[in-house]
């Protein structure tokens, strides 16, 4: 398993058919959902189904995350009590606030389970830096556009202007703290052109990946977040030029007439690292 997070797929926690196929959809991470996709009177059933799945069915080569119910619901404590005994990688905390992440961190203190927060309220957007900075156990965040728009009292549109501030703000806060940052899902599962455009936009402003609510969206999301052949080739040339400059004792050098400095080298190294991890390059090719 890599720490590449181009795509994160939500899987309803009370759906055995989808759960038993969780690792075949090609998503980098799966999010088993105990919250919105599970009816109120089936919470107990989903919790047991997910626990039995995790105890007996190996989920291979995919990061496994469980979205629990929010802090202010009667299901929160029971979800944690059961899920913390499993071998998942991370818990996704919905409607995260400073108070709720502190509580979750305390409840997970004897486990290796990490936390990812779902920022989906106007207060959450406002407090995002402090929420992320509450604990080292918190590795990153996902923006939840649907609930946020309800809280903001605005319509959720495909073009997404209403989310512009929140998107920029959560990316900046995450980058400042070296945490990962995942964009909100694109909810029209039949509009692949819209999905592609929305995903390119997310990539262009700094998101690491995008959430998905349907397995059919995964290949599109992965391909947008993959480095292109041109990006990989350019990155290889930057690294080659850097190695030559080091040998020659030069601190600064140029490539194709443009100065290459540390940020460009770091970006090139990241492209190579990603390409290696997702198999677009083999070790030794760099």
């Amino acid at each position: 398993m890599t720490n590449i997070r181009r795509s994160m797929l939500f899987i309803p926690g009370n759906n055995p058919g989808m759960l038993q196929s969780a690792d075949v959809f090609n998503a980098d991470s799966i999010i088993i959902d105990l919250e919105d996709s599970v009816a109120i009177d089936e919470k107990d059933s989903a919790r047991t189904l997910v626990t039995e799945l995790l105890k007996s069915v190996p989920i291979n080569n995919v990061e496994t995350i469980v979205r629990i119910n929010p802090f202010d619901t009667p299901f929160y404590e029971k979800d944690i009590e059961v899920i913390k005994k499993t071998n998942i990688d991370m818990i996704l905390l919905p409607k995260a606030t400073i108070e709720s992440i502190k509580d979750l961190d305390e409840r997970l203190k004897d486990t290796k389970i990490q936390i990812m927060v779902l920022i989906e309220t106007s207060l959450g957007v406002h407090q995002v830096f402090d929420i992320l900075n509450t604990t080292n156990r918190c590795l990153g965040l996902m923006l939840g556009g649907e609930d946020l728009c309800v809280d903001l009292n605005c319509a959720r549109t495909k073009s997404g202007e209403e989310l512009l501030y929140a998107r920029m703000h959560v990316v900046n806060s995450s980058r400042a703290l070296r945490k990962f940052v995942i964009d909100t899902p694109f909810t029209d599962t039949n509009d692949f052109e819209g999905l592609t455009k929305d995903t390119y936009f997310a990539k262009s402003i700094g998101f690491d990946g995008k959430a998905s609510i349907n397995p059919r969206q995964i290949d599109t999301i992965n391909s947008v977040f993959n480095p292109t052949e041109a990006e990989i080739n350019h990155a290889k040339r930057v690294i080659e030029a850097k190695d030559l400059a080091l040998e020659a004792g030069k601190g600064v050098f140029s490539l194709d007439g443009k100065m290459v400095d540390l940020p460009i080298i770091k970006r090139a190294e990241k492209v190579i690292d990603t390409a290696l991890k997702i198999g677009l390059m083999k070790i030794g090719e760099e």
């Binding site: 038993q20 059933s45 047991t48 626990t51 039995e52």
Partner: peptide, 17 residues
């Protein structure tokens, strides 16, 4: 067409209920 984990989970839920 349930797998074993699903049979167990549904039965455990029914028992607890």
């Amino acid at each position: 067409g349930a797998l074993d984990f699903t049979i167990r989970a549904r039965l455990i839920t029914a028992i607890k209920r």
